[in-house]
Design a protein around this nucleic acid. Sequence first.
DNA 1: TGAATTCTTGACTAAATTAGTCGGGAAGAT
DNA 2: ATCTTCCCGACTAATTTAGTCAAGAATTCA
Lengths: 156, 156
Amino acid sequence: MRVSTKSRHAITAMMHLAAHSGRGPMTLSDIAQVQGMSLSYLEQLFSRLRKHGLVSGVRGPGGGYCLATHPSEINMAQIMDAVDDRSPAERERFFASYRRGARGEAHDMWHDFSQKLYGFLADMSLEDFVRAQAPTLSAPASVRRVVPMGMASQAA
Amino acid sequence: MRVSTKSRHAITAMMHLAAHSGRGPMTLSDIAQVQGMSLSYLEQLFSRLRKHGLVSGVRGPGGGYCLATHPSEINMAQIMDAVDDRSPAERERFFASYRRGARGEAHDMWHDFSQKLYGFLADMSLEDFVRAQAPTLSAPASVRRVVPMGMASQAA
DNA sequence: TGAATTCTTGACTAAATTAGTCGGGAAGAT
DNA sequence: ATCTTCCCGACTAATTTAGTCAAGAATTCA
């Protein structure tokens, strides 16, 4: 698994969409401006997010992009895979070996690490962060602490 | 936090060292050969790992690199920070903002995510993986293939 | 001492990835 | 119609990753 600055752009853009979720589409121009990046580059990223079914575009005035599904159904690993244009099969290959024919203990250890990391990323949805940031948005009384401070929450 | 292929090279190299831990130093030539990468590039990575106090070098015949401390005291985040030459202060800045003066909910969400990821990586030590790979800790040393020092270092 | 081994360092180059630019479309709204 | 916005492809620039080359310093061993 690779967490690059490209992933960061994609994730923060998706977080914007999630925060805006339910209030119609959001234009790429707005996101580009807030994130301080070029519109064309954002378009490239969203082209892939769209192809991978994470967002849907609405053309014309008043248009923009929406999340394709509920924020709780979109996780970090999906976003990263999409923006790197990685199919599930390709990700598996990515895990399988850090080098053709590599042997030795370290190979298996890397595989182990990689799996854990992917599991961690796949276990965090956009909604987790929206709720953590906006506890009094539309759920007044039943605000629960979704994400406690304790880190490193993976099971082997 | 950035998890790049550079991180992967550094982490797997450190895993080799950890697996070999207690059996004297290990040469970069051997690691380079097993991992299928160039010696000089490995040298660059280890230069940083050494400056950040994660490994120590032993020159001369029979020399090589050792972990500077016990595998249980070296975690993934340290390795990544070292190899990207990132000081604790720089990492903090990295967390603080994905863009100068960025505002909006997504900024705080990214910060939240980034902290969680760092915590996850900082919570996994090299020893965790060594143990996972070598379940029979008590009776292994002499039975295992120990790969003597000068085995096949030269031939490219 | 001298030769072999291995870390240590720096400068330079090549390849890959990231980010940006440009120009043109197509769908939809007013 | 015209404007807005998504959509798409080709091209370029900047950055990072990886490799090459060359020299030097510490250590072992003969």
